[in-house]
Amino acid sequence: MLIEVVNVVILALLAVTALAAVRLNDLFAVTMMFGIYSLLATIMFVVLDAIDVAFTEAAVGVGISTVLMLGTIGLVGRRARKVSHRPILPLIVVIITGAALVYGTLDMPRFTDPTAPVHQHLGPYFLNESPDQIGIPNVVTSILASYRGYDTLGELAVIFTAGIGVLGLLGLRRRKRPGHEGGAR
């Protein structure tokens, strides 16, 4: 029962934070809202039993993302200009898309339903076979590193590529002189 109440409250707070982030034009405030949003999402993940994910989101979403965005704002300035044209068209697009998605959820299995299709095939297989085949208690780690090892290798390659991309765009060494000198070297 407690979990349901926490679930409802945290999700409502998430919605409020996201809407506040839309209305603000000070990028510093928007970034802080995003930090709060990530923190609330972390609490959601703990409530929904995803401890490993909560761990990652706490370190990445709340910590590193916020620091990177603040670093960018320090370089580009914190004022976003108010939208000059009227936001009617984007609003219509968003409402139509949202309505279509809400219609789509009506067929979905209800929240926490143990008979949902997603809990019928691979999930139980991993939970039942992992102790004998892999022999470690944390099933998330055993799926991540062993059953889905190819996938994780690919993800690591994406992170590697993104790192190389940032290295190429911004460079790491101290720049000799300020101005429009290229960062890649």
């Binding site: 929904l48 995803a50 997603v118 809990h119 999930g123 991993f126 099933v139 998330v140």
Partner: peptide, 8 residues
């Protein structure tokens, strides 16, 4: 247990 696959 909750389903570990989405977590991964």
């Amino acid at each position: 247990y909750s389903n570990p696959l989405p977590h991964v």
